[in-house]
Amino acid sequence: MIRFEAVTKSYKGTVVALREASAEIQRGEFVFLVGPSGSGKSTFIRLINREEVPDAGKILVAGKDISSLSSWKVPYLRRQIGYVFQDYKLLPKKTVIENVAFALEVIGRPRPIIKRQVPAILELVGLSKKADRLPEELSGGEQQRVSIARAFVNRPLILLADEPTGNLDPATSVGIMRLLDRINRSGTTVVMATHDRGIVDSMRRRVIELDRGILVRDESRGVYE
């Protein structure tokens, strides 16, 4: 599903954020990216959906080499990839249901499909009752659920999550992880960057560790350290 072949990425010529990283992630896997701050986790994630372009090496997503993808095709790549942020990035003036529908509207999905898929996904994340609330009227955990619903509503092949529990307390984080686990079990490949030792240790999924841009560990059923 995702393959990195000796991928190197540096910013502004000086900082090497990722150095010759190689990894292969299969369809349906759940992968944690761990490592200290600045080790290149976010860079790894942003390379997958072409927010960044590698300086050297090759990245394949769903069998396609995306390092040489022409820029007009990038939106179509991204329609297959859901993205969850640490800070949710919800639109403050739109309600929960509108925030989720927005993701389908802007890729031109027909209204009947939107009408069918959005309530279904809100049901999945357990927010049907709060569909008409504004983000500011929700707790952090609920906001993150909305953001996950928005990322998953188009049934992407891959879900990227950059520290999705970074702003949440442990109990709420567990709920979010259950949700991501469920999404993963439905066949979606999940790649999640995290600093949360407890989560990594309890889920025992594949762990890729980065250190100053170098891939230092890759274990299936790994732990945080």
Partner: peptide
């Protein structure tokens, strides 16, 4: 958000 969900 539009860019990340794949709006052209």
């Amino acid at each position: 958000v539009m860019k990340l969900v794949g709006a052209t």
